[in-house]
């Protein structure tokens, strides 16, 4: 069995003259939560449709769980779960009937179906409301139910397309927690598309950044931050002056230095020892109370990658 749940090789999909996915080559290791990041219209949803065999690629190929998306799409769909762009719930039916329908689709025996339904709905806090029509529920509850549906048959891989889109921060955080807990408990590989970078940072072991169908970067969020975002130093203290800033900007390892809310912020050009810089600040007459070294956030990395791509 391959170590990868998903492998794509120059996967390309055109819609007329528009290239939605552009030579995408990607490997998603089994058992990870993989974040697929990109702005709206980047090609994330099209990629999921290609991986589920719902669309044929124009060029290139993809394997999901070892099966070819062109020729073995039925095998793929039989082994995966999906929460796509919309929750895809039958709003006139109850939550219980929605899961019952998909449980029947996956040929779960009656006893197992009922037990699994109870287990998932209880875990997600929906058991007491299982008899209600889904149409009367909040968007957050619907998304949770859709996650339960995706996990119902214990798939080895689930696709989640913007699962927290449109949710309020509390509902989104609650869904994220549930997702992380369920994914780790069930040992499932999760392919998650999002444009919420904080979400990707919290949930994902690996992320890929895509724009206009092209893969811009892929790796662990920390690795991406180190590779694509220079470290920063934030210094809390007193007596920072223009002289201090001029002195710092003259150092070869410093990209920029400025003051914000009385704090001194230094952008470094790479991983460097900051002790000499702190000494320099002290010699300039300032008092240093606290020094914090930080990497760029995933958001900054993302924006930088987008800017670079735009320049090219």
């Amino acid at each position: 069995m391959s170590d990868y749940a998903i492998r794509t090789d120059n996967l390309t999909r055109d819609f007329g003259k528009v290239r939605a996915v552009d030579h995408l080559t990607l490997e998603v290791p089994r058992g990870t939560i993989f974040g697929f990041l990109g702005p709206n219209g980047a090609g994330k949803t099209t990629t999921i449709r290609l991986l589920l065999g719902l669309l044929e690629p124009t060029n290139g190929r993809a394997q999901v769980l070892g099966f070819d998306t062109r020729t073995e799409a039925d095998e793929i769909r039989g082994r995966t779960g999906a929460l796509l762009e919309h929750p895809g719930l039958y709003e006139r039916l109850s939550a219980e009937d929605n899961l019952e329908f998909y449980g029947r689709i996956w040929h779960l025996p009656v006893g197992e179906r009922r037990a699994r339904l109870r287990e998932l709905l209880t875990h997600l806090g929906l058991w007491e409301r299982r008899k209600e029509a889904v149409g009367s529920w909040s968007r957050g509850m619907k998304q949770k139910l859709a996650v339960a549906r995706a996990l119902l048959h214990r798939p080895s891989l689930i696709f989640l397309d913007e699962p927290t889109a449109g949710l309020d921060p509390v509902a989104a955080a609650s869904l994220r927690e549930d997702l992380a807990a369920l994914a780790s408990r069930e040992g499932v590989t999760v392919f998650l598309t999002t444009h919420n970078l904080a979400e990707a940072e919290k949930l994902c072991g690996q992320v890929a950044v895509i724009r206009q169908g092209k893969l811009l970067a892929v790796g662990h969020p920390d690795g991406l931050r180190s590779r694509n975002g220079a470290p920063k130093v934030e210094i809390v203290g007193r007596g920072f002056s223009e002289g201090t800033l001029t002195l710092l900007r003259a150092q070869p390892e410093v990209a920029d230095a400025h003051l914000r809310n009385g704090r001194l912020l230094i952008d470094l050009k790479g991983e460097v020892d900051i002790a000499p810089l702190v000494s320099l600040i002290v010699t300039s007459g300032a008092a240093v109370e606290e020094v914090r070294k930080d990497k760029a956030s995933l958001e900054e990395v993302f924006l930088r990658l987008m800017e670079e791509e735009e320049r090219e």
């Binding site: 589920l52 719902l54 796509l84 919309h86 895809g88 859709a146």
Partner: peptide, 14 residues
Amino acid sequence: ERHTLETLLASRLP
């Protein structure tokens, strides 16, 4: 219209 078709098509149903 009710956005349930794609999920149904993504299932294992032949």
